[in-house]
Design a binder for these strands. Sequence first.
DNA 1: CTGTTAGCGCTTTCAC
DNA 2: GTGAAAGCGCTAACAG
Lengths: 346, 346
Amino acid sequence: MQHGAGGKTHTMADVAKAAGVSKSTVSRAFTQPERLGAETVDRIVKIAQQLGYVPNHTARALSTGRHGNLALIVSDVANPFFPPLIRAAQLQADRSDFCVFLGNSDEDPRQEDKLIDRFVTQVEGLLLVASRLSAERIVFHAKRRPMALINRDVAGIPRVLIDSTTGVRQAIDHLADLGHKHIIYVSGPSSSWANRQRRNALKSAARLHDMAVDVVSPHVPSYDSGRAVVPEILASKATAAVAFDDLTAQGIMTGMAERGISIPDQFSVVGCDDVLGAATYPSLTTVSNRSDEAGRAGVRLLLDMLNGHMAGDTRLVLDTHLVIRNTTASPARPGFHSRQAGTAIG
Amino acid sequence: MQHGAGGKTHTMADVAKAAGVSKSTVSRAFTQPERLGAETVDRIVKIAQQLGYVPNHTARALSTGRHGNLALIVSDVANPFFPPLIRAAQLQADRSDFCVFLGNSDEDPRQEDKLIDRFVTQVEGLLLVASRLSAERIVFHAKRRPMALINRDVAGIPRVLIDSTTGVRQAIDHLADLGHKHIIYVSGPSSSWANRQRRNALKSAARLHDMAVDVVSPHVPSYDSGRAVVPEILASKATAAVAFDDLTAQGIMTGMAERGISIPDQFSVVGCDDVLGAATYPSLTTVSNRSDEAGRAGVRLLLDMLNGHMAGDTRLVLDTHLVIRNTTASPARPGFHSRQAGTAIG
DNA sequence: CTGTTAGCGCTTTCAC
DNA sequence: GTGAAAGCGCTAACAG
């Protein structure tokens, strides 16, 4: 089980000399063993191991054009939506012995461009998650390298979409059932596909119930944004808020608590992505998240492309549903101070 | 601002031909512009841009041995301890135009070995976070490539350590002040440096207060582990638990709640890492986390090594402190059944 | 200041 | 079944 005696990296020539064969033979011993004498292969492999020889990824890549690397670019690693996705993508890539570069655009399209430029010559494929780039730029980059998208809908580029439409619709139905007549959507980044999709789903569902809808837009989706936007929320006459994501929702909850407003008695809150589990108090009603599946599927799509299984115009949609917990209740009636004990998780 | 007209990747020779110069000149225009005629550089750069030429990272790496890549290997991307660290490391690497490979060992040393093997030929340096490898393997790999460590203390290898000793000691003092006489440590992975450190700090601090200490060891640090270990905790006579990390602590809280045990009235819980903020209910008393600083410092250390500023036996220690929130209180007295109504979010 | 010439370590025809 | 040689795209001495 010894991995070799450590120290300096050996080259193929070293192995060849030690084994008394040519470089080509060593090369083949690793890449196409079947075309070599069985014992030759054994001998070479053994010697290589003793020397601690590891094939040079870079040289191989330069020679073949296949790097065995792919780039995963996300908008914010620290946003809890991404880690499970990253992990799943990683695992999937690993099964095919791919290495993954991680890029963090920090919600900035220019940074994203820059990252891609830096990655493009050393990866076989790009996987952009929640890209903030314009469709044009995406198409441009897609011409340079195989590319797949997650939560971004650009025709002609294989993509997997977590469709929160279904979940958001359920959320609105739920709020309507509870008697809410006026809600507010706390928006995410305007360049976010998920945001547009959620806003639209919310508006059309609300229309069916004759609900009034306000919209308020913080700059970035975060705890702090949610907290900061509470005054604006209170300025409207809404009795419930649907937030772009759980982080924002959590911030709203804190902001409400700071003003002595009790949730869900005096105000209802719904999140999106279900990244917090039941950890908040009250536990957050939210739309389910399938980011790990998305990550896995995204990598699979990309690798399929690389294997020539041209995915064509694949558009994989993962739907979602509402997870009802304890931040939603009937709106407070004037003069009637309702109160609800924490009900168990649905 | 146009980034070139898209499509196929051009080579340096293309640019050279288009500009009517030699390849070397083009090369120099990018790497040492000062040694060239100012206008020559301008012309070349402009033509390159028009063509959409991007220098080939791989070829450059093969030629120079400098890849401009580094590998960041963590034990679990999805553990909330890591994302901020990853983000900070990324940012720091970005300032020096480095690309970062992300590896996920999933707490498995063999996987870690495998990842390193895959990375080692295409990175300039390795940054291992909370490595689960034996000291011998770490030293072995460190001979192959410049390496820095985070939360792993191996002599001779530059490392940054988040020292929870101070924070844990404060936690024990705090529990002693509250009157606890018997506590239990819910352990993390045995191969974790942080775990050993926390356990030791806890034991020695407890000794000073004449406290009894039990230890229980789940396999991996996670919400589920914490939840599952509750029966064992209750089997002991401890009145307070200190958990290896916040996730485990959160699991314990859930497990306790499921058994109708109220925290902190009937049992106190302390976490480590402060990754949950005040999001739990009751909000968790925990030891502060400085993972982002650690990530930043780790990358800085590594890059310093690469620049020849031999860091020698650098050992950077970041200390921590206790963050007191609402999961700790005096132990319940026999015969006195305390009860606490849900207080608002801290 | 700029062009020529060797490689970096590996794969890959093409011969034997 | 195995070897020899060319070349992937770039950099780095050398010359001039």
